[in-house]
């Protein structure tokens, strides 16, 4: 369905992939461009519905104000969480040097 009316270009797909730290081959980038164009074209179909009088929603559930009281719950098994990291030093996680 990817026709002359492109919704998203291969360059934009490459940019988004980079932001998401995804390494795409040229072929993959082309493939995703086609797929995303199809999806975006389908979105156009949804846009045909008049939503002028409808409040935008951010959630499928009509719940609001789900909150908890400010009570400390002891941290369970931090060692287990740290154990998931590929590299540690003592209880600290170790990563390649990052400095801005």
């Amino acid at each position: 369905m990817a026709d002359h009316k492109q919704k998203i270009t291969a360059d934009e797909v490459g940019y988004v992939a980079k932001l998401a730290r995804l390494a795409l081959s040229d072929n993959e980038a082309k493939g995703f461009t086609d797929i995303l164009n199809d999806i975006l074209a389908y979105m156009d179909k949804l846009s045909e519905i008049d939503t002028a009088d409808i409040e935008p929603m951010t959630h499928a559930i009509p719940n609001t104000n789900v909150m908890r009281d400010d009570i400390v719950v002891p941290s369970e098994d931090p060692a287990g969480i740290i154990g998931n990291a590929p590299d540690t030093k003592g209880t600290l996680l170790r990563v390649p040097k990052v400095i801005e």
């Binding site: 908890r68 719950v73 941290s75 931090p78 740290i82 003592g90």
Partner: peptide, 21 residues
């Protein structure tokens, strides 16, 4: 006393990675 989205303590100066969940 606790974090914004979980019950971990916000206490400053705790042992590294002890107030995590």
């Amino acid at each position: 006393d606790s974090k914004i989205f979980c019950g971990c303590s916000t206490k400053f100066g705790a042992e590294p990675n002890s107030s995590i969940c």
